[in-house]
């Protein structure tokens, strides 16, 4: 599988990880700021809906462990970032519909 295909597979896999408070997956919430895969090594940029969120470590570890379980990924590194800060505008159309957020 190419790196690009692995990135797509990884993105789909991360839809299993949810933000516990909003109860929606981190991908559609727009909390994944970037995914790069090089030779099976994944690097994921992740944010939280609010800085200092008490669930931050758990979400980071959840994303890391989910990514590492994807076939073809040999190692996964998750980097937390809050720049730029997350806003509801980052949600997918599906998530916006779920929450009633105006597009």
């Amino acid at each position: 599988m190419s790196d690009t295909e692995l990135e797509a597979t990884l993105t789909e896999a991360l839809k299993e990880v949810l933000d516990p408070e909003l109860g929606y997956n981190v991908v559609d919430l727009g909390l994944i700021y970037g995914i790069e895969v090089h030779s099976g090594q994944a690097r994921i940029a992740l944010t939280t809906t609010t800085r200092g969120c008490p669930a931050t470590d758990y979400i980071r570890e959840g994303v890391e462990s989910c990514a590492a379980s994807v076939g073809g990924i040999s190692a996964a590194e998750v980097v937390m970032t809050w720049e730029p800060p997350w806003t509801p505008d980052r949600m997918s159309a599906e998530a916006k519909t779920h929450f009633g957020v105006a597009a």
Partner: peptide, 8 residues
């Protein structure tokens, strides 16, 4: 209860 199970 569930934090450590997230993603697993």
């Amino acid at each position: 209860r569930y934090g450590a199970l997230l993603g697993k």
